[in-house]
């Protein structure tokens, strides 16, 4: 029997586009950067204290761009405050959780930064703990906001928050290393962040890359051995239409090449560290593309 051919159907748009992919990347890099900031003041690793403020300011700055993307992406931008209004706020909606987190996370980081500037160890630690919980929660939310849709086969996986958090950790470190490198040009010699410390951070990034590759492998296996929809997502979306962001941008440029660089004998070389950082920060954005836009692709034809 010949298969049928679909000769007419309604056209549908994929509802979320590039602004959402950028937003997911920004929140991740912000959370990753803040984790490094907390090393010194929250976890007591003193050698990280000099870069805590830079990392925290970078995390705040990245998050400040988010409202521009989110509010103007709405059909009714002036109604954005409905997300926080009692009587409107919907407790079962992941986006409602996110609206609270996106509001409270930068505030907590700002308060933490004030105590870091003042050198108040106790309050920097207390507010730092709160901010780090909010940082992780905010990025966890970006993972679940699409995960909790059983109809989106590529996104409907419990690995989503872990994939996002690991990507956040490595892209945050990558971005921070680049910022610290630039910042060193403008700092007095005695205040510069040492390459030994930056090299150590690059090694943390390497561990994160290994874990991210492991998670990506699990996701790959799930789609390959998955149900009809998951396999379709694997075959048509990931390996075909979105193969550039999935295979090249995320896996090759963002994970495998940086991994090879950071385990090689030249792993402490400045250029190697900076190149790996840039590739990781850029590569993680590839994951945000296939996750958001690829996850919506097939269903638009249903």
């Amino acid at each position: 029997m010949d298969e049928s051919v679909i000769i007419s159907n309604a056209f549908h748009h994929a509802p979320w586009g590039t602004p959402i992919t950028i937003y997911f990347w920004l929140v991740g890099a912000s959370a990753g950067s803040f984790v490094i900031s907390s090393f010194g003041w929250v976890f007591g690793i003193k050698r990280y204290k000099p870069l805590a403020l830079t990392a925290s300011v970078m995390a705040i700055f990245l998050l400040m761009i988010v409202p521009v993307l989110l509010i103007w992406d709405l059909g009714q931008p002036w109604r954005f405050f409905y997300l926080m209004l009692p009587g409107y706020w919907h407790s079962t909606a992941p986006m409602a959780w996110g609206s609270i987190l996106i509001l409270s996370y930068p505030v907590s980081m700002m308060v933490y930064s004030v105590f870091v500037i003042k050198g108040n160890v106790t309050w920097a630690r207390i507010t730092g703990i709160l901010a780090i919980v909010l940082a992780l929660s905010t990025h966890w939310y970006t993972g679940v906001v699409m995960e909790l849709n059983p109809g989106r086969f590529i996104n409907h996986t419990a690995l989503a928050p872990l994939l996002f958090l690991t990507g956040a950790f490595i892209s945050g470190i990558g971005g921070l290393l680049l910022v610290l490198w630039v910042q060193n040009f403008f700092r007095a010699a005695e205040k510069r962040i040492s390459w030994t410390l930056m090299s150590e951070m690059a090694q943390y990034m390497m561990y994160g890359i290994v874990f991210d590759i492991f998670l990506l492998w699990l996701e790959f296996m799930q789609t390959l051995y998955g149900n009809e929809g998951e396999y379709m997502g694997h075959d048509v979306v990931l390996m075909n239409l979105f193969s550039f962001p999935y295979i090249w941008l995320e896996a090759v440029i963002g994970l495998f090449i940086p991994l090879l660089l950071l385990v090689s004998p030249i792993k402490h070389n400045k250029v190697v560290i900076l190149a790996a950082s840039a590739m990781v920060a850029f590569g993680v954005y590839g994951m945000r593309i296939w996750w958001v836009m690829g996850g919506q692709f097939i269903q638009t034809f249903y």
Binding site: S4, I6, I7, F11, P15, G229, M232, Q296, T300, Y302
Partner: peptide, 30 residues
Amino acid sequence: ENKSYSNRTTQLKEEFNTFKRQHPGDAFGD
């Protein structure tokens, strides 16, 4: 759902592509 994507006629596929090109919409992810 999958056959709705994979079993489209070439004409329908092109119609959909034309529709996407002409209706950029409000920051959709087409």
